[in-house]
Design a protein around this nucleic acid. Sequence first.
DNA 1: CCCTTGACGCGTT
DNA 2: GAACGCGCCAAGG
Length: 110
Amino acid sequence: MDKESFFHDVYEVARLIPKGRVTTYGAIANYLGVKSAARVVGWAMNGAITIYGIPAHRVVNRIGILTGKNHFATPIVMQELLEKEGVKVKDDQVLNFDQILWDPMKELRL
DNA sequence: CCCTTGACGCGTT
DNA sequence: GAACGCGCCAAGG
C-alpha cells in the first residue's frame, strides 16, 4: 500500500469498487489503517469527483445514506447512477445495504 | 500561523 | 435508546 498520500490510497480503493456495490468512508479509512479518518476520506472524495474514473457515488456513510449527494453536479445524480447500476435507493437510503456492501477489508484483504 | 469547517465514526452521558 | 462530544487529517480563511 502506497503511503504517498491518504488521498491517493482512497482513489485507488474507490476505483476498485465493483459495479452494483457500495462501500463506506469508514471502511476505506479502516482499510488504509486509519480507523477514524473517515472525514478525510470524504474530503478526498470531494476532489475525486473532478477526476474521471472515480465512482464517488458508490461511497456512502456507514448507514448507507447518500450523505454526499449534495456535492455532485446535482443531488439526484448520485442516486441515479446507483440505481442505474442496480443499487436500489429509497429516500437517500441504500436498500439491502448490508448485502451490496463492498468492504475492502474483507474483499481485498483475502 | 491560528482557527474553523468538512461527503464520518464511535464512545460516553 | 437518543443526544452530545471528541478524534481523525487536510484545506481554506
